[in-house]
């Protein structure tokens, strides 16, 4: 029963990607042929050569997503702590306000923001794009981290203080290990959300900051199905990787990471 469900889910997730994979190695694939006439790696070698702009876009996308995720985690940490550990007047409203960017379309905000970014000299720059990506990434990061903070007993930190730990030591030895799964989850979410941004990048980047989605879109609309297939698969890679990593680290109710950390240290010592 569970095997059948897993199979169905796998088919549902993987099946739509099969034509993409076939396109990336096809040469002359016309209706009504079930498979292309010839298979070739041409599209892949084209996509991976610097002339296509794909390696640069891949690196830029990864850099922007990583920077945006890091910022989202750093900026979101205090908010996540407050939302997760305290019940205060208006905490429901704050939670809703944090979620608002998920509900309100980014394009609606970014057209207004564009003027501001122009004045600040942030339009058409990579830092500007990183900053604007905080709009959609921050809610995911905060909510993912608030969940682990909710499971952290404030007395655990009090206990560490009582045993002689200074605040910095408490953070390092007690708080961080306890919330690490949430930080990883929040960071991964933020990375993927940033990775998938199209409209925000287009408006604030002004076409000067060419990330992978922008490149993918331009190849897809120019009719290069083989290149689109190859780039599409490259575009999916971090998502699949993130899924595997988070599944391995976050199952076992957040204890997985700490246990892994400990067993690794034990091995190093032995």
């Amino acid at each position: 029963m569970r095997g059948a469900a897993a199979l169905a889910l796998g088919l549902l997730l993987v099946a739509p990607l099969v034509p993409l994979a076939v396109w990336s190695v096809a040469r002359g694939w016309f209706f009504p042929d079930l498979l292309p006439a010839r298979l070739t790696w041409e599209a892949w070698s084209a996509a991976l050569s610097p002339r296509s702009g794909v390696p640069q876009a891949l690196a830029l996308s990864a850099g922007i997503a990583a920077a945006s995720a890091l910022l989202a985690v750093l900026v979101g940490l205090p908010a996540a702590r407050a939302l997760g550990m305290r019940r205060f007047r208006g905490s429901g409203a704050v939670r809703l306000a944090l979620l608002a960017p998920v509900i309100v379309p980014g394009i609606a905000i970014v057209l207004g923001l564009h003027g501001l970014f122009l004045r600040l000299g942030l339009a058409n720059t990579v830092p500007g794009v990183i900053l604007v990506h905080l709009i959609p990434t921050l809610p995911y990061a905060v909510l993912a981290m608030a969940g682990t903070f909710a499971g952290l007993d404030p007395d655990l930190e009090a206990q560490a203080r009582s045993l002689g730990a200074r605040p910095a030591a408490v953070l390092r030895h007690v708080t961080l290990p306890a919330i690490l799964p949430g930080i990883v989850a929040g960071g991964l979410f933020a990375f993927l959300v940033s990775w998938a941004q199209y409209a925000l990048t287009l408006v604030i980047g002004g076409g000067k900051v060419v990330t992978l989605p922008l490149l993918l879109f331009s190849y897809a609309t120019s009719g290069r199905n083989d290149l689109t297939g190859a780039i599409g698969i490259l575009y999916l890679a971090p998502g699949a990787l993130a899924l595997v990593v988070s599944a391995r680290l976050l199952t076992g109710r957040g204890a997985g990471l700490a246990t892994m950390h400990a067993t690794m240290r034990a091995k190093v010592r032995a």
Binding site: D155, Q159, S162, P177, A258
Partner: peptide
Amino acid sequence: PPERRQAVLVFQSGMLFPSM
């Protein structure tokens, strides 16, 4: 601050550090 008092509190629930 608590870390300078050497007055150690033992909580009802033990409050062991789960990652250690």
